[in-house]
Design a protein around this nucleic acid. Structure first.
Length: 200
DNA sequence: TTATGGATCTTCT
DNA sequence: GAAGATCCATAAA
Protein backbone atom coordinates (compact mmCIF):
# COMPACT_ATOMS: atom_id res chain seq x y z
CA UNK A 1 0.00 0.00 0.00
CA UNK A 2 1.24 3.39 -0.91
CA UNK A 3 1.57 6.03 1.72
CA UNK A 4 -0.73 8.99 1.20
CA UNK A 5 0.03 12.36 2.64
CA UNK A 6 -2.77 14.16 4.49
CA UNK A 7 -4.08 17.12 2.48
CA UNK A 8 -5.08 20.62 3.52
CA UNK A 9 -8.73 19.55 3.61
CA UNK A 10 -8.01 17.18 6.48
CA UNK A 11 -6.87 20.05 8.71
CA UNK A 12 -9.48 22.64 7.70
CA UNK A 13 -12.11 21.25 10.04
CA UNK A 14 -13.29 21.62 13.60
CA UNK A 15 -10.24 21.43 15.88
CA UNK A 16 -11.64 18.71 18.13
CA UNK A 17 -12.46 16.59 15.08
CA UNK A 18 -8.97 17.02 13.69
CA UNK A 19 -7.47 16.20 17.09
CA UNK A 20 -9.29 12.86 17.23
CA UNK A 21 -8.60 12.13 13.56
CA UNK A 22 -4.86 12.72 14.02
CA UNK A 23 -4.56 9.76 16.39
CA UNK A 24 -3.01 6.76 14.62
CA UNK A 25 -1.68 8.92 11.76
CA UNK A 26 2.04 8.81 10.98
CA UNK A 27 4.23 11.86 11.46
CA UNK A 28 7.36 11.96 9.27
CA UNK A 29 10.33 14.33 9.32
CA UNK A 30 13.34 14.40 7.02
CA UNK A 31 16.50 16.28 7.88
CA UNK A 32 19.70 15.85 5.89
CA UNK A 33 18.23 12.74 4.31
CA UNK A 34 17.60 11.19 7.72
CA UNK A 35 13.99 10.11 8.04
CA UNK A 36 12.16 9.54 11.32
CA UNK A 37 8.61 8.26 11.69
CA UNK A 38 6.17 7.94 14.56
CA UNK A 39 2.48 7.18 15.06
CA UNK A 40 0.62 9.99 16.80
CA UNK A 41 -0.79 8.57 20.04
CA UNK A 42 -1.57 11.68 22.10
CA UNK A 43 -2.81 15.18 21.22
CA UNK A 44 -4.43 18.26 22.75
CA UNK A 45 -6.71 20.83 21.08
CA UNK A 46 -6.21 24.56 21.56
CA UNK A 47 -8.18 27.56 20.37
CA UNK A 48 -11.16 27.41 18.06
CA UNK A 49 -13.87 28.37 20.50
CA UNK A 50 -12.79 30.90 23.16
CA UNK A 51 -9.94 29.19 24.99
CA UNK A 52 -7.98 31.16 27.61
CA UNK A 53 -5.27 28.49 27.60
CA UNK A 54 -4.45 28.88 23.89
CA UNK A 55 -1.60 31.08 22.72
CA UNK A 56 -4.00 32.61 20.20
CA UNK A 57 -6.44 33.80 22.91
CA UNK A 58 -5.17 37.39 22.91
CA UNK A 59 -5.15 37.76 19.17
CA UNK A 60 -2.49 37.79 16.51
CA UNK A 61 1.06 38.54 17.63
CA UNK A 62 4.39 37.94 15.99
CA UNK A 63 4.67 34.65 17.85
CA UNK A 64 1.19 33.33 17.13
CA UNK A 65 0.78 34.56 13.56
CA UNK A 66 1.19 31.03 12.16
CA UNK A 67 -1.61 29.72 14.38
CA UNK A 68 -4.05 32.00 12.56
CA UNK A 69 -3.28 30.63 9.13
CA UNK A 70 -5.43 27.99 7.45
CA UNK A 71 -5.21 24.34 8.48
CA UNK A 72 -2.07 22.34 7.70
CA UNK A 73 0.69 24.70 8.82
CA UNK A 74 3.22 23.80 11.52
CA UNK A 75 3.36 25.96 14.66
CA UNK A 76 6.49 25.46 16.75
CA UNK A 77 7.12 27.34 19.99
CA UNK A 78 9.85 27.44 22.61
CA UNK A 79 8.80 26.83 26.22
CA UNK A 80 10.35 27.08 29.69
CA UNK A 81 13.63 28.18 28.13
CA UNK A 82 14.38 24.56 27.32
CA UNK A 83 11.99 22.76 25.01
CA UNK A 84 10.23 23.03 21.67
CA UNK A 85 6.66 21.87 21.14
CA UNK A 86 4.92 21.19 17.86
CA UNK A 87 1.36 22.00 16.80
CA UNK A 88 -0.65 21.43 13.65
CA UNK A 89 -2.78 24.44 12.69
CA UNK A 90 -6.48 23.70 12.10
CA UNK A 91 -9.63 25.38 10.75
CA UNK A 92 -9.80 28.35 8.40
CA UNK A 93 -7.62 31.37 7.94
CA UNK A 94 -8.07 33.81 10.85
CA UNK A 95 -9.45 31.37 13.45
CA UNK A 96 -6.33 30.76 15.51
CA UNK A 97 -6.60 27.08 16.44
CA UNK A 98 -4.17 24.18 16.56
CA UNK A 99 -3.55 20.67 17.83
CA UNK A 100 -0.54 20.04 20.06
CA UNK A 101 1.24 16.76 19.36
CA UNK A 102 2.02 15.35 22.80
CA UNK A 103 3.32 11.84 22.12
CA UNK A 104 4.40 9.50 19.33
CA UNK A 105 4.92 5.78 19.01
CA UNK A 106 8.21 5.57 17.08
CA UNK A 107 8.23 3.23 14.07
CA UNK A 108 11.27 4.20 12.00
CA UNK A 109 14.59 5.97 12.52
CA UNK A 110 14.92 4.78 16.10
CA UNK A 111 18.71 4.98 15.98
CA UNK A 112 18.58 8.60 14.85
CA UNK A 113 16.12 9.41 17.62
CA UNK A 114 18.35 7.82 20.22
CA UNK A 115 21.32 9.89 19.05
CA UNK A 116 19.32 13.11 19.11
CA UNK A 117 17.98 12.30 22.57
CA UNK A 118 21.38 11.06 23.72
CA UNK A 119 20.25 7.47 24.13
CA UNK A 120 18.11 7.12 27.26
CA UNK A 121 15.38 4.56 27.74
CA UNK A 122 13.53 3.59 24.50
CA UNK A 123 10.13 4.28 26.02
CA UNK A 124 11.04 7.86 26.91
CA UNK A 125 12.10 8.70 23.36
CA UNK A 126 8.88 10.41 22.28
CA UNK A 127 6.40 10.23 25.17
CA UNK A 128 6.08 14.00 25.70
CA UNK A 129 5.79 17.15 23.59
CA UNK A 130 9.34 18.36 24.23
CA UNK A 131 10.85 14.91 23.83
CA UNK A 132 9.26 14.09 20.51
CA UNK A 133 10.45 17.38 19.02
CA UNK A 134 13.99 16.55 20.02
CA UNK A 135 13.72 12.99 18.73
CA UNK A 136 12.19 14.06 15.40
CA UNK A 137 14.63 16.97 14.99
CA UNK A 138 11.85 19.56 15.08
CA UNK A 139 13.08 23.10 15.77
CA UNK A 140 12.10 26.66 14.74
CA UNK A 141 13.19 25.97 11.17
CA UNK A 142 9.96 23.94 10.87
CA UNK A 143 7.84 26.91 11.90
CA UNK A 144 5.44 27.80 9.08
CA UNK A 145 6.05 24.61 7.05
CA UNK A 146 2.96 23.44 5.21
CA UNK A 147 2.32 19.74 5.86
CA UNK A 148 0.62 18.96 2.51
CA UNK A 149 3.66 20.12 0.50
CA UNK A 150 6.71 20.42 2.77
CA UNK A 151 9.80 18.36 1.84
CA UNK A 152 10.91 18.11 5.47
CA UNK A 153 7.77 17.30 7.47
CA UNK A 154 4.42 15.73 6.68
CA UNK A 155 1.77 13.30 7.97
CA UNK A 156 0.89 10.04 6.22
CA UNK A 157 -2.62 8.62 6.22
CA UNK A 158 -3.43 5.53 8.24
CA UNK A 159 -6.60 3.87 9.37
CA UNK A 160 -8.90 6.02 11.46
CA UNK A 161 -8.95 4.94 15.08
CA UNK A 162 -12.31 3.57 16.32
CA UNK A 163 -13.85 5.76 19.05
CA UNK A 164 -13.70 2.88 21.52
CA UNK A 165 -9.90 3.11 21.51
CA UNK A 166 -9.76 6.86 22.05
CA UNK A 167 -9.23 8.06 25.63
CA UNK A 168 -10.33 11.56 26.65
CA UNK A 169 -9.14 13.73 29.54
CA UNK A 170 -8.39 17.28 30.59
CA UNK A 171 -5.29 18.97 29.21
CA UNK A 172 -1.95 18.78 30.93
CA UNK A 173 0.43 21.45 32.17
CA UNK A 174 -1.87 24.47 31.94
CA UNK A 175 -3.51 26.67 34.54
CA UNK A 176 -6.45 28.13 32.59
CA UNK A 177 -9.54 26.33 31.28
CA UNK A 178 -8.16 23.21 32.93
CA UNK A 179 -11.52 21.47 32.82
CA UNK A 180 -11.87 21.34 29.02
CA UNK A 181 -11.82 17.62 27.99
CA UNK A 182 -9.60 18.38 25.02
CA UNK A 183 -6.82 15.83 25.41
CA UNK A 184 -7.11 12.66 23.32
CA UNK A 185 -4.92 9.58 23.40
CA UNK A 186 -4.70 5.98 22.22
CA UNK A 187 -5.86 3.74 25.04
CA UNK A 188 -3.21 1.34 26.23
CA UNK A 189 -0.35 2.65 24.10
CA UNK A 190 2.83 2.60 26.18
CA UNK A 191 4.11 5.82 24.59
CA UNK A 192 1.30 8.01 25.92
CA UNK A 193 2.91 10.64 28.16
CA UNK A 194 2.81 10.51 31.93
CA UNK A 195 4.56 8.69 34.73
CA UNK A 196 5.59 5.17 33.85
CA UNK A 197 3.32 3.54 36.39
CA UNK A 198 0.20 5.43 35.36
CA UNK A 199 -0.52 3.10 32.47
CA UNK A 200 -3.53 1.17 33.72
C1' DT B 1 8.21 5.43 44.53
C1' DT B 2 6.70 10.10 44.82
C1' DA B 3 7.86 15.01 45.36
C1' DT B 4 10.35 19.13 44.42
C1' DG B 5 13.11 22.59 42.14
C1' DG B 6 16.32 24.13 38.46
C1' DA B 7 17.26 25.09 33.77
C1' DT B 8 17.02 29.25 30.81
C1' DC B 9 14.47 32.28 27.03
C1' DT B 10 10.46 34.31 24.51
C1' DT B 11 6.40 36.89 24.95
C1' DC B 12 3.39 39.82 27.02
C1' DT B 13 2.10 42.96 31.12
C1' DG C 1 9.39 41.80 35.60
C1' DA C 2 6.84 37.42 35.55
C1' DA C 3 5.00 33.29 33.81
C1' DG C 4 4.88 29.58 30.74
C1' DA C 5 0.88 23.87 26.38
C1' DT C 6 8.22 20.68 29.99
C1' DC C 7 11.81 17.54 31.30
C1' DC C 8 15.09 15.60 34.36
C1' DA C 9 18.10 15.19 38.33
C1' DT C 10 18.04 14.95 43.01
C1' DA C 11 16.08 14.32 47.56
C1' DA C 12 13.08 12.24 50.79
C1' DA C 13 10.33 8.36 52.64
Amino acid sequence: MTAIRLKARFFERDTLEVARALLNQELVTRRNGEETRGIIVEVEAYGGTPDPAAHSFRGITKRTEVMFRSGGFVYVYFIYGVHYCMNVVTEDNGVGAAVLIRALHPVDGLEIMKERRRSSHPLSLTNGPGKLCQAMGIDPSFLGEFLPTSPSIWIEKREKLPPSLIGVSHRIGISKAVEYPWRFYVKGDPYVSGRKSMNR
